[in-house]
């Protein structure tokens, strides 16, 4: 079992968290709204989960669910302005929201630990290992070292979370609500005239995006066991946006691909990683100009599926 490398698993775990974050911005974008506040919602989920675990010793799943729901509720509250804001105004307002949240996290020291953040958050891999040991299980029986077991557990939990999240919105996209989202993105006025309550769905999408960000934040807290306001800056929000822009926001697999690609490549190519963010910048400009729909778009997916069907035939 030497091939199970905790470092690789850690990178993979970050990929998965980023896939969830990419999904979060996709959901809001799928109604044509751009949110730059997802780092803020992520921090709400992270802090809620961390505090419930460290101060109230609640089980991790409860804290994660609470974090996601709280972020979703905050999203609904912030989403109300989307009743009257559109385009760049919404983007800037959500950016402002993210910064306000961060200022609160830095300044409300008694609750959030201020700029230092919260440490010693139960790490989900360790918690599972401890639970397993109580039941008389030893990772050695699988041929795993404890740290291998821990990394693997974290990876698997995140994998399940990411797959469920993507599957949720993949299915939603093919449902009545998903069609309404797409209609609003493509032509708000025609959507209205077709009987779609545009405002309701915009707030719903905004809130769902916030909830998914919160979920990612809560999982992040329990995967790294340490969070601080520095984890949830404007840069994080922009990074999430880059996933979607690069990968493509016309299909849910776009942001997921963007998140995976942009997390793995800099890790794999150390030489690049120094210039990672410079490259991000160049990539964004190039993609917006030459392939505004992003790398992955529905026609590409159709072609790939078509090719596969053709090969099968």
């Amino acid at each position: 079992m030497e091939w199970i490398n905790p470092y690789h698993l850690q990178v993979a775990s970050f990929v998965l968290i980023n896939v969830i974050l990419g999904t979060s911005i996709y959901v809001t974008l799928s109604t044509g709204q751009l949110s730059l506040g997802n780092a803020g919602f992520m921090s709400i989920g992270a802090y809620a989960a961390a505090l419930l675990a460290t101060k109230y010793a609640l089980p991790i799943p409860v804290g994660v669910a609470a974090g996601a729901l709280l972020a979703g509720a905050a999203g609904a509250l912030v989403g109300i302005p989307s009743l009257r804001l559109s385009g760049v105004y919404l983007a800037i307002a959500t950016l402002g929201f993210g910064e306000v949240i961060r200022a609160v996290a830095i300044n409300w020291e008694s609750l959030t630990g201020g700029a230092v953040g919260i440490a010693a958050i139960p790490q989900m891999g360790r918690v599972v290992l401890a639970g397993a040991r109580d039941l008389g299980f030893s990772p050695a029986s699988l041929g795993l070292k404890p740290n291998q077991f821990i990394s693997l557990t974290v990876f698997l939990i995140l994998l399940v979370a990411a797959v469920l999240t993507v599957a949720f919105f993949l299915r939603l996209g093919r449902s009545r609500v998903g069609r309404a989202y797409a209609a609003i993105r493509l032509d708000e006025r025609a959507a209205e005239a077709s009987g779609i309550p545009v405002t309701y769905y915009k707030v719903l999408a905004f809130s769902q995006g916030a909830m998914v960000s919160g979920l990612a934040g809560a999982l992040y807290a329990h995967a790294t066991s340490f969070i601080s306001p520095a984890d949830f800056t404007y840069h994080r929000a922009v990074e999430i946006l880059v996933f979607a822009v690069f990968g493509g926001s016309g299909h849910i697999l776009g942001p997921a691909f963007g998140a995976a690609f942009l997390t793995v490549v800099p890790e794999a190519l150390r030489a690049i990683s120094h210039y990672r963010y410079i490259l991000y910048g160049v990539l964004v400009v190039l993609v917006v100009i030459y392939r505004p729909q992003g790398v992955i778009d529905p026609p590409l997916l159709r072609r790939m599926r078509g090719d596969r069907a053709a090969e099968a035939a």
């Binding site: 449902s175 009545r176 609500v177 069609r179 797409a182 209609a183 959507a191 077709s194 779609i196």
Partner: peptide, 10 residues
């Protein structure tokens, strides 16, 4: 199908 939205519920 979008046009059917307001006559359906899911």
């Amino acid at each position: 199908m979008v046009g059917r939205h307001c006559r359906t519920r899911a």
